[in-house]
Design a binder for these strands. Structure first.
Lengths: 238, 238
DNA sequence: CAGTGGTCTAGACCACACT
DNA sequence: GTGTGGTCTAGACCACTGT
């Protein structure tokens, strides 16, 4: 019961045992009672760790049968909310941004609705082009409340992962994100920035980040589809 | 403790109270102890129901503060795994399929790897064009094991929602799905089937459905991006 | 400080899958 | 029947937030 929860310890331990082949694909994990004993925790804690592995797509749990290993590859799936930078880094790319531009802006009708504020509310918009291994992969616009990030324009050169930057410089974190994923054809400007032909398919993500009950960041990201994909693991349902 | 779990009862009750405005946007829900008393259940059960509402994007939970209502709109988000048909129906479209074609096929290298079976394993492929309000929205290919769906070709006219069909005709259900979402430009054939220009952006979804630890269905779906989007709600993380 | 959610325990009984 | 995960309880203490 130290700083990190017990279920995190159990989760990491099991993830490692799956990664190193101690539990192989198609094999059953020890049952819940055995896991309780192995790690000296209660069933609640075991079940929390197991459900995290399910979210990772690493195991499958079936009542009456047991828990089987599906894969030994740690996947960078989007059930957790991660920045584009972090996702690309985990895939082994050398990640960077270029053409960072920070400007003040007043909320138009679209932004006012998204943030649920008055028209004209003072916002800051951060434009960036994401690079992986030297070539563009995505263009992003992030909108923030001006009052939340005083003096941001002067610090723009320090922005690589925006989420990390906001946390370190301003102590801003988010507890919930809602991603809306669709696609579009690149227009002329987007194509030039990304180095592709106009009309090429782009993945679009609109991300609303909540601090508490308030939308405190809105991100519009367009990603070259041939260089990126999202993985979502779901269970139950029809 | 009847057929439906208690947390489902609590979840639905709270969802209704949010939908009808008893708990309004920005307001706090009763705390966990109060909810225990209101519904006569333990804290574990309350927390399970609350976590389901978080997954729906309806509420936000903050330690030390409480549980606040974010929205009163029931969203059709993709944290639960649903068929395209079900999602479109919930949006109020009049849904159908056309050009259903069922054929036997032998696993090629790609399919053999996806299903983790030998090259040449006997599969069935179902081709369909999804229609909403009379116009095409998506084309889908679903691959199944031939042995799992004997005589399927003769029943093809009864397929509307494939998932419902498989459940009712063959008792097939899935306990896990892994969706990989990206985008592409429509080629000539796809454009003709969907009634769009070649090159138009399409959302692509590769869905692996698991029965236990085995991939038992693979779906390749291409959706007109301007008519569809995915919503994913996530919490925590960086 | 008081009040909130976050974590955890020990134990119980139910529902499902296989033999 | 036996063994698995699924649900649930009652209670405890920790960590964070605001006053």
């Amino acid at each position: 019961m130290s700083r990190t929860p017990e279920y995190t310890r159990v989760y990491n331990a099991l993830k490692n045992l799956i990664a190193d082949g101690t539990y192989k694909r198609g094999e059953l994990l020890p049952n819940e009672t055995q896991l309780e004993e192995m790690y000296g925790v209660s069933r609640t804690t075991v079940r929390k760790a197991v459900s995290m592995l399910v979210q990772d797509g690493l195991i499958s749990v079936r009542q009456g049968i047991g828990t089987t290993v599906l894969s030994n590859k740690t996947k960078q799936n989007l059930n957790y909310f991660n920045s584009l930078t972090a996702t690309l880094e985990r895939r082994g790319y050398d990640v960077g941004v270029k053409d960072v531009y920070v400007t003040d802006i007043a909320a138009d009708a679209f932004l006012a609705e998204q943030f649920d504020v008055e028209l004209g509310t003072k916002l800051v918009c951060v434009y960036r082009t994401h690079i992986a291994d030297g070539v563009p992969v995505a263009i992003a616009r992030n909108y923030l409340f001006k009052e939340d990030v005083p003096g941001m324009a002067e610090k723009k050169d320090r922005i690589l992962s925006l989420y990390r930057f906001l946390k370190e410089e301003y102590g801003i974190t988010y507890n919930l994100a809602e991603d809306t994923i669709s696609a579009c054809n690149a227009n002329y400007e987007e194509a030039m920035l990304l180095g592709v032909e106009p009309g090429e398919a782009l993945l679009t993500v609109v991300r609303k980040c909540y601090t508490g009950d308030k939308v405190s960041q809105l991100a519009l990201v367009k990603i070259i589809a041939s260089r990126h994909e999202f993985v979502v693991v779901t269970k139950d349902g029809l």
